[in-house]
Design a protein around this nucleic acid. Sequence first.
DNA 1: TGCGACACGTGAAGC
DNA 2: TGCTTCACGTGTCGC
Lengths: 237, 237
Amino acid sequence: MEDTGLFQEMDSFAFNFDDISYLNTFSSASTPESTNSSHYNNNKRFHSQTTQINSFPIESPDQSVASATPPTKASSSSKIISFDNMNSRIKKPKTESGYGENLNFGSEYDKRENKVAAAITNRNPIQARDHVIAERKRRQKLNQKFITLSSILPGLKKMDKATILEDAIIHLNQLKEQVKNLEEQVADKKVESAVFMKRSILFADDDSSSSYDENSDQSLPKIEARVSGKTSSQHSE
Amino acid sequence: MEDTGLFQEMDSFAFNFDDISYLNTFSSASTPESTNSSHYNNNKRFHSQTTQINSFPIESPDQSVASATPPTKASSSSKIISFDNMNSRIKKPKTESGYGENLNFGSEYDKRENKVAAAITNRNPIQARDHVIAERKRRQKLNQKFITLSSILPGLKKMDKATILEDAIIHLNQLKEQVKNLEEQVADKKVESAVFMKRSILFADDDSSSSYDENSDQSLPKIEARVSGKTSSQHSE
DNA sequence: TGCGACACGTGAAGC
DNA sequence: TGCTTCACGTGTCGC
């Protein structure tokens, strides 16, 4: 239904757009991203990495724009009503609370308000570019991990991020439960074996070392021992 | 170091900004988000949900903006060079490949190019608002799952998304390994118990049922049995 | 067609 | 201070 979203990370621009020629300034950077498989794709989607970070376009010579209106954000395509201009430096009241290490988050992400315009974020172009690159890298890293996570999840069908997370949670809990049960089983087996050991001693087992504690059976619980799927059950002590 | 990012999802606007009065049109929506614990916060960060979706602001009467420049995107704060105007409808060549169910992703997310201007994205304001809300919802859902996932991960310190994912992967693999080992152990224990059972029979155990297969020991491997932590080991055919 | 899912660039905030 | 992380609104695409 809504699948096939496929984590369309990366590229996006830096492509031949036929009619629009992108200048490739910002020659520097190139950002060592290469340390990645580049096509993971056997998995499913996720761009992950595509080794195409550099070749960073600036706005096309035409289209002008002039980029007035300083730090407004993302002018939507709406013509009459737009959601713009509500986060030009005034944006988030946000938490602002302590949360020293973890927890502590207020109960409602702090309704402490304002503290408006704390940081004007006058970033110069170089910093802005680095920021873009860093963020891009971060997204790639995350997607990489999503891919890895999804690869160790059995029978995963949908492959969208939410499903992967959900499945990881489920699988984690299942595995936990399984370990618990298995450990119980092993513990039971140990007791069971101890019981049998005791019985062996009772019947004068001569070829084995005789260094057993004769009173250990006092601490043994009354158990019902099932062996190798046979139905014979016996009670001991 | 870079911790404490705390998934600053949610709210962002819809707050009293003192100097700027936000009109609260778009009265509708309200989007049933309530089905959430609202303060998960015992965990760490992540806004998750905050039950404050409605009260959607439009741009302030002042600030004008006029919102010309149709679908340019996010004019950065850069003054000279800006990264704007490279995705005004022309943006992504992207995959465009099939990937029917899963897999199939080309090898480099398809270098099939262009198919430019497929969808002009003339979204009306209502659709735009719905889009914003839907996206917000999606982010909340994802963060919710991140919280849940992090909550079942033991000894998690950093709590940023990458770490959570990473830890989930590690833990998942550990658990898998543990299950494997435990299962082996259980299998061994079964054999071991059978061996003891056989020994009991050999020494004429009269009070137990005698319906065992006398030849089963032929198929039993030579094992070393450790019982209840005692060091006495015995070898049995 | 509308909706779900992603990637993007960006402002903000904590170290 | 610079780096990292996050949330945001938006464009785009597939079903």
